[in-house]
């Protein structure tokens, strides 16, 4: 965990991470509502997988407001979230907790804070399939995933694969869309999208949060 020596002043790495996080948060409508968290714990109580997390969802917000982003990014929590949105719909302050966890996942991926090899492997394989075929080829996705994480699991999963094959539910060949070239162009351009003017507004709001939380 990062040391905070002077209230309101973040260590360099923390401030870099915070910057990266805010870039992500500004794309979430209502992302600035973090400030309104009353630490009631409804999110944690509603989460079906909080028992398996090292930081509860409530704690994630508390730590963020205290300026400690590094520990969140290194936590198991962001990779355990199954994205079921139970916290989001119950939050009395209307904080989009799931979307914030997505934002944290993206920072973690971008900064290559490799905590969950399996999630990276799955995302990589998925993105490649979409770029190549325009659709997700499940068979190749899962084969690549298991090869990259734990090839022994391929053996463990083989019986299920065979059952699916027998049930005619395994796509042996990829489905390719005709507009692959078009889709690639769209993806390439969308990868470049940045939205700087909103970033400034979001930074102003959430920085204020950080100060409030750590001042006596």
């Amino acid at each position: 965990m990062a040391e905070i020596e002077t209230p309101g002043v973040l260590p360099k790495r923390e401030s870099e991470l915070r910057e990266a996080f805010l870039e992500q948060v500004d794309i979430v409508p209502g992302g600035e509502k973090l400030r309104k968290c009353i630490q009631c714990g409804t999110c944690t109580g509603s989460c079906p997988v909080s028992y398996a997390m090292d930081l509860s969802p409530r704690e994630v917000i508390a730590r963020f407001r205290a300026g400690d982003i590094e520990s969140i990014l290194k936590s198991r929590t962001i990779w355990i979230c199954a994205s079921c949105y139970a916290c989001t719909v119950r939050c009395p302050q209307d904080i989009k907790i799931t979307d914030l966890l997505y934002a944290l996942k993206r920072v973690s991926m971008e900064k290559k804070i490799r905590r969950s090899r399996s999630v990276y492997a799955l995302s990589d394989a998925f993105v490649r399939s979409v770029k190549m075929f325009g659709r997700n080829w499940e068979l190749a996705l899962l084969t690549e995933f298991y090869l990259r994480t734990n090839p022994l699991n391929l053996i463990k999963m083989a019986p299920l694969g065979l059952r699916m094959l027998r049930a005619k539910r395994l796509g042996i060949w990829p489905e390719r869309i005709k507009g692959r070239g078009d889709l690639k162009k769209i993806i390439e351009r969308a990868e470049q999208i940045e939205r700087p003017q909103e970033r400034v507004a979001a930074r102003a709001v959430t920085d204020e949060v950080g100060y409030e939380a750590i001042q006596p």
């Binding site: 992500q24 794309i27 994205s83 997505y102 996942k105 993206r106 991926m109 999630v119 799955l122 995302s123 998925f126 993105v127 399939s129 979409v130 325009g134 659709r135 997700n136 869309i177 005709k178 507009g179 078009d182 889709l183 769209i186 993806i187 351009r189 969308a190 990868e191 999208i193």
Partner: peptide
């Protein structure tokens, strides 16, 4: 000629791409 929506996976990689491929 529909394409993959990006599912939950693309949203953790690059949200703008997730929106753009859905928008197609």
């Amino acid at each position: 000629d529909w394409n993959c929506c990006g599912a939950t996976v693309y949203m953790s990689v690059k949200e703008t791409v997730s929106f753009a491929i859905s928008a197609r």
